[in-house]
Measured scan of single mutants.
Amino acid sequence: GNIFIKNLHPDIDNKALYDTFSVFGDILSSKIATDENGKSKGFGFVHFEEEGAAKEAIDALNGMLLNGQEIYVAP
């Protein structure tokens, strides 16, 4: 299952995104959108192997604080 994450703190990188979401299941890919200079655009995507893991991550993390910013997590 794919999920979309927005309002990410600029310091959150691909590894931090992966580490945050990997507790919910096996991740096939995770990516933070960046500009041409490699600076985070504040949103990203995680693709879980299983749909159930994606739903669990959405339920658990939507509205949670990550590096002091409330993140939005949705399908």
Rank of each mutant, 00 (worst) to 15 (best):
residue 3 I to P: 00
residue 18 Y to F: 13
residue 62 N to V: 08
residue 74 A to P: 01
residue 71 I to M: 14
residue 71 I to T: 09
residue 41 K to G: 04
residue 68 G to S: 14
residue 47 H to Y: 02
residue 9 H to R: 09
residue 10 P to R: 14
residue 37 N to I: 11
residue 31 K to P: 00
residue 39 K to H: 07
residue 32 I to L: 12
residue 13 D to Q: 06
residue 75 P to D: 04
residue 70 E to A: 12
residue 22 S to T: 14
residue 57 A to Y: 01
residue 2 N to H: 01
residue 38 G to R: 14
residue 43 F to Y: 09
residue 59 D to A: 11
residue 24 F to A: 02
residue 49 E to Q: 13
residue 75 P to R: 15
residue 41 K to L: 07
residue 13 D to A: 05
residue 56 E to K: 08
residue 4 F to M: 00
residue 54 A to G: 12
residue 12 I to D: 01
residue 30 S to I: 03
residue 20 T to N: 05
residue 67 N to H: 07
residue 60 A to P: 01
residue 55 K to T: 13
residue 26 D to V: 12
residue 63 G to E: 11
residue 64 M to N: 08
residue 75 P to L: 13
residue 29 S to V: 01
residue 31 K to G: 01
residue 37 N to K: 14
residue 60 A to L: 09
residue 61 L to A: 06
residue 47 H to N: 03
residue 20 T to C: 11
residue 13 D to L: 05
residue 12 I to P: 01
residue 25 G to W: 01
residue 30 S to Y: 06
residue 59 D to T: 10
residue 68 G to F: 08
residue 71 I to R: 01
residue 55 K to H: 09
residue 17 L to G: 00
residue 24 F to P: 01
residue 10 P to H: 13
residue 18 Y to Q: 08
residue 18 Y to H: 13
residue 71 I to K: 00
residue 74 A to E: 03
residue 56 E to A: 09
residue 41 K to Q: 06
residue 66 L to Y: 09
residue 35 D to V: 09
residue 13 D to H: 10
residue 65 L to P: 12
residue 43 F to P: 00
residue 52 G to I: 15
residue 28 L to G: 04
residue 73 V to P: 01
residue 26 D to F: 14
residue 12 I to S: 03
residue 31 K to E: 01
residue 25 G to N: 02
residue 30 S to L: 07
residue 54 A to V: 06
residue 49 E to N: 15
residue 37 N to T: 12
residue 5 I to T: 06
residue 5 I to P: 02
residue 58 I to P: 02
residue 38 G to Q: 11
residue 13 D to T: 06
residue 48 F to H: 02
residue 2 N to Y: 00
residue 12 I to N: 02
residue 38 G to P: 02
residue 15 K to A: 06
residue 10 P to L: 14
residue 66 L to V: 14
residue 5 I to K: 02
residue 69 Q to R: 15
residue 72 Y to N: 05
residue 72 Y to K: 07
residue 70 E to I: 13
residue 75 P to G: 15
residue 27 I to Y: 01
residue 11 D to Y: 11
residue 12 I to V: 07
residue 29 S to R: 03
residue 46 V to Y: 00
residue 74 A to H: 12
residue 60 A to R: 05
residue 9 H to Y: 08
residue 36 E to K: 14
residue 39 K to F: 15
residue 10 P to Y: 10
residue 28 L to K: 06
residue 7 N to G: 09
residue 20 T to M: 09
residue 55 K to S: 11
residue 36 E to G: 14
residue 10 P to S: 13
residue 17 L to V: 09
residue 40 S to I: 04
residue 35 D to F: 12
residue 60 A to T: 14
residue 66 L to C: 13
residue 14 N to R: 03
residue 68 G to C: 11
residue 57 A to C: 09
residue 27 I to D: 00
residue 73 V to F: 03
residue 50 E to R: 13
residue 49 E to P: 06
residue 69 Q to G: 13
residue 40 S to A: 11
residue 22 S to R: 10
residue 58 I to F: 07
residue 56 E to D: 14
residue 22 S to H: 10
residue 6 K to N: 02
residue 49 E to L: 09
residue 15 K to Q: 06
residue 63 G to D: 07
residue 50 E to H: 13
residue 69 Q to D: 13
residue 32 I to G: 01
residue 23 V to T: 09
residue 37 N to M: 15
residue 70 E to S: 14
residue 42 G to D: 04
residue 50 E to G: 10
residue 35 D to T: 14
residue 45 F to G: 00
residue 35 D to G: 14
residue 3 I to K: 00
residue 31 K to M: 04
residue 47 H to P: 00
residue 44 G to C: 06
residue 75 P to S: 14
residue 20 T to G: 07
residue 20 T to V: 07
residue 35 D to P: 03
residue 26 D to N: 12
residue 25 G to L: 01
residue 57 A to P: 02
residue 50 E to V: 14
residue 34 T to S: 13
residue 18 Y to L: 10
residue 31 K to R: 06
residue 75 P to T: 13
residue 33 A to H: 05
residue 72 Y to E: 02
residue 6 K to C: 03
residue 26 D to H: 11
residue 67 N to D: 13
residue 55 K to V: 13
residue 71 I to S: 03
residue 52 G to F: 15
residue 38 G to L: 15
residue 62 N to E: 12
residue 41 K to V: 06
residue 18 Y to S: 09
residue 69 Q to Y: 13
residue 19 D to K: 12
residue 41 K to S: 04
residue 67 N to I: 11
residue 37 N to D: 13
residue 11 D to L: 15
residue 63 G to S: 11
residue 5 I to S: 02
residue 15 K to I: 05
residue 20 T to A: 14
residue 53 A to H: 15
residue 59 D to G: 10
residue 31 K to I: 06
residue 63 G to I: 02
residue 4 F to R: 01
residue 3 I to A: 04
residue 24 F to V: 04
residue 44 G to S: 04
residue 27 I to L: 05
residue 26 D to Y: 10
